[in-house]
Design a protein around this nucleic acid. Structure first.
Lengths: 318, 318
DNA sequence: GGAAACCTATGCCGGGTCGGCATAAGGTCT
DNA sequence: AGACCTTATGCCGACCCGGCATAGGTTTCC
C-alpha cells in the first residue's frame, strides 16, 4: 500500500474507467489496470465489479475509498507543511529562561513575535541556573536558552550567543522608605539596613557579595530566598531592603526603588540568549533573538527608580 | 513522498539514530541514511541537525514529524478497514424498495440487522415501480432492489433474486362496516361497494382488475390514487372500501380488514429482492436478503383480518 | 591519551519493480 | 455488422532501491 496506489484507486472510482484515470494521472492504461489488480490482491477483496466497460465500486470498495481519500488528504497536509516551512515562516522553537526573565520580558514579547511569525510554535519553559540550561541545549531539548553573560564565560566555546539587554541590581523597600531623588544608592549606604537577598546560586547575589567586600562593608542579611518574589513581599511589609534584578515586574506594588552603585557605577549584568553551535538556527529563530533583544532594550529596565521611570515616560510622549 | 519515507522519518526521530531505526525497520543503515537525505532534499529543508553521532530534530522537523505520524495513522486506518472487510463484516449496502415495503418491513428490520453487522452501512431509498428499480440496479447505483415477483418476469435474466414474503390484497373499510367473521371476502361480493383503488401502474391494481374480469363483475371505482395511504384515509371516513396490499401498516387505525379471494383463493403476490447478476454480493449482502426474508415471513401480513391477527397473537404467546 | 566501539555518509553493483507498447478479448453504439 | 471503446495481460528495458564495503567522525572506556 502506498500513496500511488491510493491515488490510482480514487481516480478510477471518481472517473469510472481505467482509461480516463490514466489520462488524468498521465500514466498508460495497462499500468493503472495492474495497480488496481495489485490493490485488490493486497486488500484481499474486490474493489470494483466489472460491469460492461465500466468499473463499479463494490460496497467494500466504497468504504475503502473514503479511507483512501482521508489518507491522500493527510499526505497533502504533509506537503503543505513542508511548503510553509520552506518559506521560513513555520516551525517549533523551544526557549528556556529564568522565571523572572520569562515573566518580566518574554511573556509580553510573544504576542509581538506571533504577529510577525504566526505559524511558529514557541514553547517556553523555566530553568534555574546556567548548568541546567546548558545541559538542555546540549541534549537538543531546547533551541534557545536565556541567561546572564557573566555566568557562562568559562564554557562559551560550545555556544553562540546574542546579547539582549542590561539588567541592574536594585534596592527595593516599602513606601515609608526614601532612597532620595538621585535614583541610585551607593552600596556602602546599605550597611545599616536589614537586607533581603537572593541565594548564592544567583549571579546577582555573588556580584552583590563581591561589591560589599570591595566596599569594605559587612551586609546585615536578615533573610535569604531562592524566590525573588518573596523578597519583594517582605520589603513591602517593611522587613527590610530587598536586593533584586531590574528584570522583575514591580508595577502596581507599593515599593521604592533605587539602582545600587559601587563608586557611582551601577552593578549591572547583561542578559544573553544562547544556542548550541552545532545546530542550525532557522530564520525565525534568529529573528526571535534579534526582536527579543530590541524589545527588551526598549522596555528595560522593567523596574527602576521612580525618577527614571517618570523621565522615560515624558520622553516616550514626544 | 511515500509511506516508506514517512516510516523512516518517524523511526529515526523516535530512536535518535539511523542505526537503531535500521534495526527496527530491518533495513540496512545506508539505505535509511539515504532515505533521510532524500526526504530532506524533497522537503527542501533540514529535518535533523547532526550532533555528534546523533540526529537531533530541527524545529521544522518537529512539525513535519507530527504530520507524518498523522499520515501513518491514516494509512493504518486503511489497512484496518481492509482487514474488517476481509472478515466480511464491513461495507456499504444500498437498498431500494417501494415506500410501503420500506416503511412496513425494512425499517423495523434494520436495527436487527445492525446488531448482527454493526460495521455495515445500509443506505435505503424509495423507488416507484420496477422500471426505476431495474435501471438503478443496472447503473450500479444500488446493490439490492425489492419488488413484486410478477412485475419482473419478462426480464429476470439480468437479475438474481431471493423471495421474501407473500403479500395479500386486502379490503379495508371504516369501523361501521362488517366483512363477517370469515376474515376474507370473495371478490364478487365487492361488486356493490364503492371502491377506492390504486392506480393501474401498480401490479396489485392490475391483478385486481383481472380478477374482476374473471369473476364477471364490473367494479364501482369511485376513487383512484397513486398513494395507498390516501385510500386508507378515505376508507376510514366511510367513502368506500379501499383495496390495499397487506404490507401496509394499519395498526391503530379504525379499520376493518378482509383478505380478498377469487374462488376461495387469496389474491397474493410474492415480494422479492433482486441484484444485478454481473455484480458480486458479499456475505453481508446475502445475509441481508436471507434475514429480511425470514423477518418478513415472521411478521407478515403486517395487516390482515381481525380474526387472523387475534389468532396469531394467541399463537405467539405459547 | 589511545584503542575500541559506535555512528553517519557515500560509492558500487545487481536484482527487482515499474511503466510503455502491443495485442487479445469483450462490450456498446450506430 | 462494423466501428469504437474499454479492460486485462504479455514482453521488454530503464531505473530505482537496498546490501555490502568503506571512509571519516564521535564517544566511551581503560
Amino acid at each position: 500500500m502506498d500513496l500511488k496506489h491510493a491515488k490510482t484507486f480514487v481516480a478510477v472510482a471518481d472517473l469510472g474507467t481505467v482509461s480516463l484515470a490514466a489520462l488524468q494521472l498521465r500514466v498508460a492504461q495497462p499500468a493503472l489496470s495492474r495497480r488496481i489488480a495489485e490493490l485488490e490482491r493486497e486488500f484481499g477483496l474486490k474493489l470494483f465489479d466489472r460491469v460492461g466497460r465500466r468499473l463499479v465500486l463494490t460496497g467494500g470498495g466504497e468504504q475503502l475509498l473514503a479511507d483512501c481519500r482521508a489518507l491522500l488528504t493527510s499526505a497533502e497536509a504533509v506537503a503543505e507543511r513542508a511548503r510553509a516551512l520552506n518559506t521560513g515562516g513555520a516551525g517549533v522553537l523551544k526557549v528556556v529562561g529564568s522565571p523572572q526573565i520569562i515573566e518580566g520580558a518574554v511573556a509580553e514579547f510573544l504576542p509581538r513575535y506571533a504577529r510577525r511569525f504566526p505559524a511558529v510554535q514557541v514553547k517556553l519553559s523555566a530553568a534555574i541556573g546556567w548548568s541546567e540550561t546548558a545541559a538542555m541545549l546540549e541534549r537538543g531539548e531546547i533551541h534557545l536558552g536565556i541567561n546572564l553573560m557573566r555566568a557562562t564565560l568559562p564554557e562559551d566555546q560550545r555556544f553562540s550567543s546574542v546579547p539582549l539587554a542590561p539588567i541592574d541590581l536594585l534596592a527595593a523597600s516599602g513606601p515609608s522608605h526614601d532612597f532620595g531623588s538621585k535614583g541610585s544608592i551607593e552600596i556602602a549606604q546599605l550597611a545599616g539596613h536589614p537586607l533581603l537577598v537572593l541565594e548564592t546560586s544567583y549571579v546577582f547575589r555573588r556580584n552583590f557579595d563581591a561589591a560589599c567586600r570591595l566596599a569594605g562593608i559587612s551586609p546585615n542579611i536578615v533573610y535569604e530566598s531562592r524566590t525573588p518574589h518573596t523578597l519583594l513581599v517582605m520589603a513591602e511589609s517593611g522587613h527590610g531592603v530587598a536586593i533584586i534584578p531590574s528584570a522583575m515586574r514591580t508595577k502596581g506594588r507599593p515599593l521604592r526603588l533605587a539602582a545600587i552603585t559601587y563608586r557611582g557605577k551601577r552593578l549591572r549584568e547583561h542578559s544573553t540568549i544562547y544556542w548550541d553551535r552545532r545546530r542550525s538556527l532557522p530564520a525565525y529563530a534568529t529573528a526571535f533573538c534579534r526582536m527579543l533583544g530590541e524589545r527588551m532594550r526598549e522596555t528595560f529596565p522593567i523596574s527602576g527608580p521612580t525618577a527614571e521611570l517618570a523621565a522615560r515616560k515624558r520622553k516616550g510622549s514626544v
